[in-house]
Design a protein around this nucleic acid. Sequence first.
DNA 1: GTTTCGGCTGTAAACGTTTCCGGGAGTCTC
DNA 2: GAGACTCCCGGAAACGTTTACAGCCGAAAC
Lengths: 329, 329
Amino acid sequence: MHTVAALAGVSIASASRVLNGLGGSPETVSRVRAAAAEVGYVPNAIARSLQSQRTDLIALAVEDIGNPVYVEMMRAIESVVAESGRQLVVHATGGQVAAETALLRRLAHRYVDGMVISPIRVTDSHLEAMAASPAPVVVIGQLPDEAPIDNVRTDSRAGVALAVSHLVAGGRRKIGFVNGPLDTVPGAARDGGFRESLAHHGIPIDEQLIEVGNFQYAAGRAATERLLSRATPDAILCANDLIAVGALHALLVAGLRVPQDVALVGMDDTELARMAYPQISSVSLGSATRGNLAAQLLLARIKDPALPPRREQVLPKLVVRASSEVGQR
Amino acid sequence: MHTVAALAGVSIASASRVLNGLGGSPETVSRVRAAAAEVGYVPNAIARSLQSQRTDLIALAVEDIGNPVYVEMMRAIESVVAESGRQLVVHATGGQVAAETALLRRLAHRYVDGMVISPIRVTDSHLEAMAASPAPVVVIGQLPDEAPIDNVRTDSRAGVALAVSHLVAGGRRKIGFVNGPLDTVPGAARDGGFRESLAHHGIPIDEQLIEVGNFQYAAGRAATERLLSRATPDAILCANDLIAVGALHALLVAGLRVPQDVALVGMDDTELARMAYPQISSVSLGSATRGNLAAQLLLARIKDPALPPRREQVLPKLVVRASSEVGQR
DNA sequence: GTTTCGGCTGTAAACGTTTCCGGGAGTCTC
DNA sequence: GAGACTCCCGGAAACGTTTACAGCCGAAAC
């Protein structure tokens, strides 16, 4: 910029003003423009950040960038973030508490203007780190009610209930359940929802029909195999779509027909559910909507940090596909 | 930092030195440490960047963060980038030339230290922008031989040949081909490879058996349906795994058995191929390896910009699974 | 007792911008 | 024709670090 100013024969202050479109006489404007073009001037983002105290970067921390549910969130977030002229910095945490709190603490370095994080477990150190963070944080997922943090959540218990009701309405009574780890927030919620929901329909809980793995395809397949070796359900509910695809695989290998012998329902309603054959029914937890809302909340808070903490809720919705169609028994 | 220095009763220079572990008397060291702890001092990443002329950020630009092949690359890149203490900024370009060149030009702002880009089309404006970029760029994919740019590629023609030979060896002669757009680098290479390879095996080319869509699931499925409405192949080769999953779906819906009636082979060997039922054979183009190499090249160049341009090649490898097992007719 | 050396320290410049402030020139109004 | 007002402009400070340089002091060497 010094160079540009010198070349145009003006002060750097004037050059800066012209290049930011803040006034200047026609004469100087054209001289500065010409000089900038001649030397191929490009403003330095870092110096600008230092001065403006913003980086125009937003961080996103998710467990696993391979899980399609996070891909959908990421796409949604990316689009609103890009719209606002900012960019996304993506972190994969592997679901590790230490990695997540480290990331949160790093916010203090001000390398981004804010963060959207979707922790799979929420610990006290999370809460502390978020409270201490000078940069705004928005959480996708459950949070203690008293935590003063912007938060968008869904009601996965209600989601599970939708699925169970649907299966029961289709005449299924021996409903299996393949869940993720119980010490995670979603795992615990789904477990609770499942038990609650069976009780509500007057169906006794059969522990033989419940299996736990993690939220991945391979674990879902293995867990389903274990379940099938013990009992034969007439339906299986899975805690997410990756697990459901694994379960489908296990069912087909076992020679069971879906949905005739066993109905199958997943959760998250990702494209994976549509890509399976038969297509898998799934409880939509509005991942794109949640991502979108989270990004909006974050931008709003960056704009006005004094805003009271907000909490958004998106309602689950069941999408029925071939894998659980009623009347296919 | 001013505050810390004042509190410790030393100059900011001394404070800086202590906090960076560069000497200082035991007395000052402990005073500065104590002061820093007291006020909860955290260094400002931006000011540091302005001074050090590095941001410790690496950009990654891919067409679609939803495509599992890019997810694999991203994971591989993320891990080496994180290992070096840097972070990844992810951009989704949607395969748009304008978006990609804009991104490349933005490198001049120095908001990242370098970029890995995997363009699906390579135009002159790409080459210009890369040549003009003051920050290093590594390309994953084909590039004109004379372009002086670090580059890691694979030989997808050879990959196609592996698949065709495998199918022919299994007794298939009416081999269908579902490709992505021919104006993309991978699309063109695969088309060339397919024709070349059939010729090599003395099989005449039947245009009825060739379809073009894009590299997505839905397009793959639709293209396969079109193909099946015209002819009945005894094998189908797909330009990537997303297409292959779509093709599988179309085949099953049409009542065809895989592999008995139609053998199926995809490309990229992503987890998607393993998650399908039956599992889909796929030509591995080493996406993780390519990502890893690209990241290494980039870090090496950042360290020493004077390095001559390097070019790495990873060999394709066929992974045979149930969808094309020999002897299943 | 003088010189030399090494270890610490503080001053100040530098990184590349933006922006506040004051001054100068020109125009309008009465 | 004088005052008020507007518009531009340049100087300089500021953002928060790192680091080159020079100065100081004490200890070691002769």
